[in-house]
Design a protein around this nucleic acid. Structure first.
Length: 445
RNA sequence: GCGGCCGUAGCUCAGUGGUAGAGCGCUUGGUUGUGGUCCAAGAUGCCGUGGGUUCAAUCCCCAUCGGUCGCCCCA
């Protein structure tokens, strides 16, 4: 082995998934179906650049996402240019770019603005199960000026859940809550540090009631208040029956009342269409601080098989674009985590692979002297809408057939091997072969 | 940013202090124009990288890089 034929051994870059053609074709089909569902609810598509200005991302930051931002730089940047151009970074979600887009095109858009985006997002974090550094997000949002009717929360949740239902995946459940219920409840109890309390309650499933109690009592919260919080977080319902259960805890606050009314409205809108696929779960909080009302989270119904990973979610935000425009723009948005969803199912061998190539017909090359003729046959078939490959070299028929077999090409076309011989087509599934005319042949003839 | 485990052929993995193997895959052949099976032959490895211990390291020790799982946070 000499230095010159030494290869750079390729390796997978952790967190940047890529699939084989037979799986990519499935992913593409899913993207198509999701798109169809979103459009069926009247959402229009936009695409924003992979990058935003760093300052724009930071201005609208939500949570701790800023330390996950990938910054763009030139490998050999000219020091003279330094500082002349705004620093760019890859977007970590699609909500911030959308907010910037809405602010920028404010006069040209019609409100309420309903849009979807199917694009990749980038996060510089340590990858692990179900977590990627480059991943598809299928985002839908509704944004309006000044006020956004609660009906939009229900519509958006319906559009999101319908997208999952359009895919060949195990059953999912959408869990719903309203931030105002949680914050109002905490205020009613007189708990000051709402952030700590909500964040801790959000981990209830993971660390258990004891874990939550330990953390909250260490923060100086009285045990009867902790018990009340745990009682709230334990409430589940498929309809507005949860309101009575919350009232029974004996806490009252105007914000709590507001949240209860809102969530009751949303669940009553969704229950007739989705039944038990929507679930009020007052233990769902979600991390992002900018949510102010409805929050939703989608998971597989079978939490044992798929861990308890969220495969999508979103919520209501009162003023998303305040960093970009002096207008009040409330919205509701959600994201379907396609890459996570796909990756989880792939791990479990639950994705049925598609074909390895789109080719419908392989045209056999009988011998070099008949190449022009065979190429003409291929073109005739292409013109009629078939996906056609002409075998790429003069080879034994056996090899040409084996190629078709390996690539899952369903039909092999035999042009004449001798003058005055008819064309023949072979169905590789059945093995049957019969004379055919390239100008008139149909698949199921 | 922190912790656990792991790095041997394209893939999945065995293995030994004296420089390596299997299965799958790949290439070719089993004659004249026909695949999947079967049979035969063949190619492919700085045993992640750097240092240390040793007569000798793929194996032991250290470091480093990479992978993976978890914490944090999130789709």
């Amino acid at each position: 082995m000499t230095a010159e034929n030494r290869v750079y051994k390729p390796k997978a870059i952790s967190g940047f998934p890529e699939w084989l053609p037979e799986y990519r074709v499935v992913e593409l089909a899913w993207l198509d179906r999701i798109r169809r569902v979103f459009e069926s609810y009247g959402f229009c598509n936009i695409e924003t650049p992979a990058v935003e200005e760093v300052d724009a991302l930071l201005a609208a930051k939500g949570g701790d996402t800023q330390n996950e931002i990938y910054v763009l730089e030139r490998l050999y940047a000219d020091p003279v240019d330094e500082g002349k151009e705004a620093r760019l970074a890859l977007h970590f979600d699609l909500t911030v770019p959308m907010a910037r887009y809405v602010a920028q095109n404010f006069n040209a858009l019609v409100f309420p603005f309903k849009r979807y985006q199917l694009q990749k997002s980038y996060r510089g974090e340590r990858p692990q199960k179900g977590r990627y550094r480059e991943f598809y997000q299928c985002d839908i949002d509704i944004v309006n000026v000044d006020a956004l009717p609660l009906q939009c929360d229900a519509d958006l949740a319906a559009a999101l859940l319908s997208a999952y239902k359009a895919l060949d995946i195990p059953p999912v459940v959408m869990q719903l809550n309203n931030r105002k219920i949680v914050t109002g409840f905490l205020k009613g109890l007189g708990i000051e540090d709402a952030t700590l309390a909500t964040r801790t309650l959000d981990k209830l499933d993971k660390i258990g009631a004891k874990g939550v109690t330990d953390i909250l009592s260490a923060a100086g919260i009285a045990s009867d208040k902790i018990t009340a919080c745990l009682g709230l977080a334990a409430i589940r319902a498929h309809d507005s029956a949860f309101v009575v259960q919350v009232r029974a805890l004996g806490v009252s606050h105007p914000e709590l009342d507001e949240g209860l009314d809102e969530l009751a409205f949303v669940i009553d809108q969704l229950a007739p269409q989705f039944g038990t696929q929507v679930l009020v779960n007052l233990g769902i909080i979600r991390g992002l601080d900018y949510y102010t009302g409805t929050v939703m989270e989608v998971r597989f119904a079978d939490t044992k098989t798929f861990a308890d990973l969220s495969i999508g979610g979103g919520g209501r935000y009162e003023n998303l674009a305040s960093a970009f425009i002096n207008q009040k723009l409330p919205g509701v948005g959600a994201s379907l985590g396609l890459t996570r969803l796909f990756g989880l199912l792939l791990d479990k061998n639950m994705i049925t692979p598609g074909r390895k190539c789109p080719t419908d017909i392989l045209v056999v090359l009988p011998e070099e002297a008949r190449r022009t003729e065979a190429a003409a046959t291929a073109n005739t078939l292409r013109a009629r809408g078939f996906n056609v490959e002409l075998y790429h070299r003069d080879a034994k028929i056996k090899n040409q057939l084996a190629y078709a077999e390996k690539k899952n090409i369903p039909f092999v076309w035999f042009p004449p091997f001798k003058d005055d011989q008819p064309h023949e087509v072979k169905d590789l599934t059945s093995g049957q072969q019969s004379p055919a005319d390239p100008a008139t042949w149909e698949r199921n003839s």
